[in-house]
Write a protein that binds this DNA or RNA. Structure first.
Length: 418
DNA sequence: TCTGGGGTCCTTGAGCTG
DNA sequence: TCTGCAGCTCAAGGACCC
């Protein structure tokens, strides 16, 4: 308030404060299933064990109940008692996720299916419906982009969003915009999400876990000591089980304890890059921008066999799988419009040891035969006397088809022998 | 009857070159 | 010509993420 004759202080327009949001869909895979099959609500359901194939589901139902006419439409409203027919606890798969009633029995993501079956044998197992998951994923991301266009895709169920310059993005530290996005996603998909808004991606990611499900957490720079430092180091995105164990070995359990260590000490014990990074994140510093576009670095296909295979004794089977993997990678590259020149293989032996071999050729390719030939040469460089559990084929050093750098002139060489 | 699949990034060591 | 060094690329493996 000012009286006549008094000078009025004019507040200069202030620059917007950096506000970054991390959005995480709540129990995404399970929620997509419950949207499709509301009759499963409240029941223990384990999602995983491979891809959903409707023809396979129909075949199982027809076999079990031949007296009934089964059509594709029936799959939309299957009675609960038929669900156990659609999946089966077998093989070497893992659970992608589990509904809360199943989690009460100790079943969780990344758990082997056989163990899940032991813990909760009455749970319904549903193979993943990737097409439906991808459809809902596209839908919620499109909804976000219409409100806040600077969005970074971080996988099927999570994104970063730059709120800084979005109208309303500064109100209540971003809470108002977060609320609008939550509401819009629910209207578009029927699903809930949790959002953390903070000065950067690092803290936003941690903040989105504070209130789940359907929560919003707003963190300011000055909250670091009170909200972030008491958290265990494992909560930092980039500190996995190995780094956490090493930190624990040094008596560092919380982010606050990490922050108290000297930068030089961290570099000495954790390396120049990782040590310096640990120091930065402990102090809540992260300048990474929200990236709206990114190019893939590599594409690969891999598969775990139903049983461990031996290169000599199972040569035909292994050869067929190898060829199929090369064809799949080539198909992925062609479909997405890429070529690559680093071709490699990955093997996991029966003892879970992983080996990789790759080599860079002098031209770009996305042809299955060419990939097969080069990957075959890589395969000759590994120990094939051990039984193999997993085989993978990878193509890296990618370039967009049509934007390939010109090939160097090559003298004519000897004819390819195989 | 533990432990998937598809990615990225970093470190380390070998080999090459000026 | 030999040696040491720095800088670079490539290959392999490890850690991590969703």
């Amino acid at each position: 308030m000012s009286s006549p004759g008094m000078l009025t202080a004019v507040t200069p327009p202030t620059a917007p404060i950096r506000r970054i949001a991390h959005l995480d869909m709540d129990a995404f895979y399970a929620s997509v299933e419950l949207l499709r099959y509301p009759q499963l609500k409240g029941l223990p359901v384990v999602i995983g064990g491979g891809r959903r194939r409707e023809d396979d589901m129909l075949a199982r139902l027809r076999e079990a109940y031949p007296e009934r006419e089964w059509t594709g439409d029936d799959l939309a409203h299957i009675p609960v008692e038929f669900f156990p027919l659609l999946g089966q606890y077998a093989g070497r798969g893992v659970a992608t996720t589990a509904t809360y009633p199943a989690r009460q029995f100790g079943v969780g993501s990344a758990m082997g299916l056989m163990k899940a079956a032991r813990l909760c044998p009455q749970a319904i197992l549903l193979p993943v419906d990737f097409d439906e998951v991808r459809r809902i994923s596209r839908l919620f991301k499109q909804t976000i982009r219409e409100i806040a266009p600077v969005m970074e895709d971080r996988g099927v169920d999570e994104v970063y969003i730059d709120f800084t310059d979005v109208p309303g993005g500064q109100r209540e530290g971003g809470r108002v915009l977060a609320r609008l996005i939550q509401k819009s996603i629910f209207q578009a998909t029927g699903l809930t999400c949790s959002i953390g808004v903070a000065p950067n991606k690092l803290i936003a990611k941690m903040a989105s876990e504070f209130k789940k499900p359907n929560g919003i957490s707003v963190v300011y720079e000055q909250d670091l000591e009170q909200l972030i430092w008491p958290l265990p180091c494992r909560k930092i995105n980039g500190v996995g089980p190995k780094a956490d164990a090493k930190l624990q070995g040094h008596g560092i359990h919380t982010i606050g304890e990490l922050a108290q260590r000297e930068r030089t000490w961290l570099i000495q014990h954790y390396g120049k890059s990782y040590g310096a990074w640990l120091h930065e994140v402990a102090w809540g510093r992260d300048e990474r921008p929200v990236q709206t576009e990114s190019e893939p670095v590599s594409m690969s296909r891999e598969t775990t066999f139903d049983r461990d295979l031996h290169a000599a004794r199972d040569r035909a089977e292994l050869g067929a799988i190898f060829t199929r993997l090369c064809e799949q990678v080539a198909d992925d590259l062609q479909r997405k419009g890429y070529v690559g020149k680093t071709i490699g293989v990955k093997l996991r032996y029966d003892n879970f040891q992983i080996v990789t071999r790759d080599s860079t050729i002098d031209h770009f390719t996305n042809e299955a035969t060419s990939i097969r030939r080069q990957a075959g040469l890589c395969l000759k460089r590994v120990d094939l006397t051990r039984r193999i559990r997993l085989l993978g084929v990878r193509v890296g050093s990618l370039a967009r088809l049509g934007e390939v750098p010109p090939e160097p002139e090559r003298p004519p060489g000897p004819a390819q022998l195989f």
